[in-house]
Each structure stands twice: as C-alpha cells, then as structure tokens.
Design a protein around this nucleic acid. Structure first.
Lengths: 226, 226
DNA sequence: CGGCCACTTGAAAACCTTCAACCTATGTGG
DNA sequence: CCACATAGGTTGAAGGTTTTCAAGTGGCCG
C-alpha cells in the first residue's frame, strides 16, 4: 500500500497520479484531505479555447476541471442546439456518461482549460472504490441545477442576474477575485437561459443601471462598482 | 455473511431490511441483481396524499420511492414557492441533503405513497459502502434534469409536451400501462415549467387537438387514442 | 481596408400572463 | 336530498414582456 512508487508524476502530463499528492488537490477535492490511493487521475494535454473534450454520443469518460471553463452543449431532437451547462474548476464533466454509457452532451473549452481524466471503476466492481464514489456523489448531489431550473418563468432580468451571480459564486470557490471575465457570449447565455441574445443585452443593461451588477463588455462583478 | 437472520422483514413496516431480499428490489434497483448486504433500507409508514416527507431546511435523510409520487417544492428567497421536481418509484428523494447537510426542498406525497429510508454511511467512512455509493451515483447521474432544463425558452406547448412525455416515460419504467393519471394540478405543472396555469390548460388543449397527446382531465397518454 | 463577429439599439409582431367570469366535481352541513 | 362551499379546471379579452427583424456600431485580423 505504498503510494509512493505509483506516482510517476514528475513527467507531468501523461501519467496517472494519485490525487492525494497533487499540488492542486484542494482545488479539486476541497479542504478535507483525500486519503492516499483513493482517487487517481491523469492530467490531459491542455485545451485551447474552442477545443472539444467530449462529443455528444461519444464513449464514456469522466473528467474534473483543473483550470479554465467548459461549455456543455446539447443537440436536441428537433435539430436545434442549446447550451445546457458550464463547468468551472473543481467541477465534473461527463459523469452522466458513467450512468448512461453515452455522452449526452458536447463539452468545449470556453477558455483555455486543463482537465484531469478520472480512473473510474467498471460498473459492478465497486468494492474498494468507496472513497472515489463518495466524493463523486457528493459533488454531483451538490450541483444546484439538480432539481430543475428554479428560474424558469422568472422575468428575463432575474434570470440573467441569477446566472451571473451564480457564476461569480462558483468562480470564487477557486479564485480570490471580485471581477470575472465571462467565458460566454450573450448568445450563449441566452441559449442557456432560454432567452434571445438581445434580451440578455437589455437585461444586463438594466442590471448595470440599477447597480445590481457591474457589467462592462464581458467583465462582471457584484454591486455597482466594477 | 448470512443475510438471512439480518432480515426481520416479516413484521414489515419498521425494521431495516437488506434491499437484496426485498420482493420489490427490481423496481428500485433494476434488473442487475443487488449483492447481499450492499444496500439496507427501512420501509416507512405509508404516506397519505398531502403528507410531507421532508421539510425544506430539515435534517439530512435519503429515501427511495417505492410506490406513489412525491412533489418537491422549494421556497425561493423572494418568498414565492415553486415546484422543482417530481419523484416516481425507484427514484431518490433528499440525496442533495447528503452533500449539503440540509434539505433544499420540501417533499410532499402527491398521491398515496410509500418510501424506504436508506441507511447512508457517515460522510468520510466510505470504505465498505462502495456498492451503495455506486448505485446512488448511477441513479443520480442518470437523472434527465442534471444538465439544466433543456426546455427553457421553448414555446409553452413544447414545454408541456416534454413534461408529459417525460412523465409517461418514467412512469412506464415501473408500470406496464399506457394511460396515467397525473398527480399534479395544472397550477403545479405550470409552477414546475414556469408557466401560468391557464397557459398549461391551453397547451394541453392544443396537444390534445393535434393528436400529440390524449388528455381528459388528469388522465394522459401518448398519441391520439386514450 | 474589408470582412467577420460580437454586441447594441429600435420598432413591430408574437406570445404569455393577468384578470375576470364561469363551469364542473366533490364534499359538507342542514 | 338539497343548498352551499371549495378546489380545480376552462374560456375570453386586455395588457405586458419577449422575440423577431432590421439596421448600425466597434473591435480584431487577414
């Protein structure tokens, strides 16, 4: 059970590493220290902006975001395409494929990003993987969008405000800043919220004027300051 | 490892039982047989229509629905209340509380229902609970509403159609029928979808006229027949 | 410079909500 | 048994929000 010689981590990008000894372990797994050998992951080559990590319909694979931001897009049966989620550092991508055997959405880097691929147990061979599964379950259950979008039906201004505020809140879990640069276009935000891009523009204008948010271009912060 | 004398299941409602020996194990855990001692649960006293199982803000507890249907409601910070989900047999209720330490929503029986309370490991003591955690993770990841509401922004008719079709699909996983009685009022459906109750009425009328669904009162089925 | 893309703004049209009235089924008390 | 009350459901018309369409701006890159 010596975890030392399992980690060939010095050459970095290609080998599988014990998350417990990764310098960024707190960002991914939180303050509660991870026991040795509980979770193994492999750092993938960095993703440039626009690079695709997952294709809808592709084979199962689960990643955790290390840096950057991924957009999740889904093609609906009627042919239209919608943004269905955003993943920030410490969040999981592709977990659904573990249950369904297929990727339900496409994941694309919204900004330059880095991810680690998790070594998942074959379904049915869970013994000995309790810690990994518990961590994943906790992350998964903590996601706010678990019980349907509570903002559906709210006025556009409230939806946009909730989206931006939630983005800032999540971003602040791994970054100490006040201002953030939105990785999405107004059209993408609209696609996610079910609004026309023009409506997003007008809502942001309104929120900015009423000092609820500070918005200039893609830079946003809470309150009126910026 | 004899699971026999752990099950005092003949007196039914009060004792903890190994899910592997429960007559309804397939309904809850699917066709893949559950190994002995992997998941334990306790059948709770039956819930009458309207009875509350969980209160928003309450202490953590995770249940699986055996029969009936639960509605999940959430009070938003602005004081309004919204329906945020529906749970049918085999689905989990309250899993979010395991991660957050608090119940984010109220769960109320929409029809007479029965649930089993799952024995959850204390967070951090995952060793030996791999199978339970894996099963929960799979269920949790399989939920369709995981990546935000794909119907937001669609016309009202499409939202209502998607809701009814999804309800029928889920209900057919544990019931062999064609027609189902909706456990929700039009106002509740509207609350879930972010629509006014009148709009739900008109959408259902339209779907019925165009033969996409058959609707009479609360009884619904796919196609034009009923 | 020209082209492209994201963003912005204005006006008309479409859609949904709101409000009000009415209907139907169910249950209760006289 | 009926009168009545209640809750859910349905319908019509007015009003408000959002979408759509159209045009124009500004930054970035070949």
């Amino acid at each position: 059970m010596n975890s030392h010689d399992r980690n060939r981590s010095r050459n970095g990008a290609q080998s599988e590493t014990d998350c417990a000894v990764c310098p960024g372990t707190r960002r991914c797994w939180g303050a509660e220290p991870l026991s040795a050998d509980a979770v193994h992951a492999r750092r993938e080559p960095p993703l440039e902006r626009g690079a695709r990590l997952l294709e809808q319909g592709g084979t199962p694979a689960v990643y955790i975001v290390a840096t950057g931001c991924l957009v999740l897009r889904m093609s609906l049966p009627d042919g239209s395409q919608r943004v269905v989620g955003l993943r920030l550092p410490g969040e999981l991508v592709g977990l659904e494929s573990y249950a369904r055997g297929i990727q339900p959405y496409t994941a694309q880097a919204a900004t330059a990003s880095a991810v680690c691929r998790l070594r998942m147990p074959e379904p049915g061979t869970a013994a000995g993987h309790g810690t990994l599964l518990e961590r994943l379950l906790l992350k998964s259950a903590a996601q706010p969008e678990r019980a349907a979008a509570p903002w559906a039906g709210l006025p556009a201004i409230e939806r946009v405000a909730a989206f931006i505020e939630n983005y800032i809140e999540r971003a602040q879990l791994t970054a100490r800043e006040e201002r953030f640069r939105l990785p999405l276009t107004r059209a993408d935000i609209g696609s996610y919220l079910g609004l026309a891009p023009e409506t997003v523009v007008r809502a942001l204008g309104h929120l900015s004027q009423t000092q609820r948010l500070a918005v200039r271009g893609r830079t946003v912060s809470l309150g009126g300051t910026l």
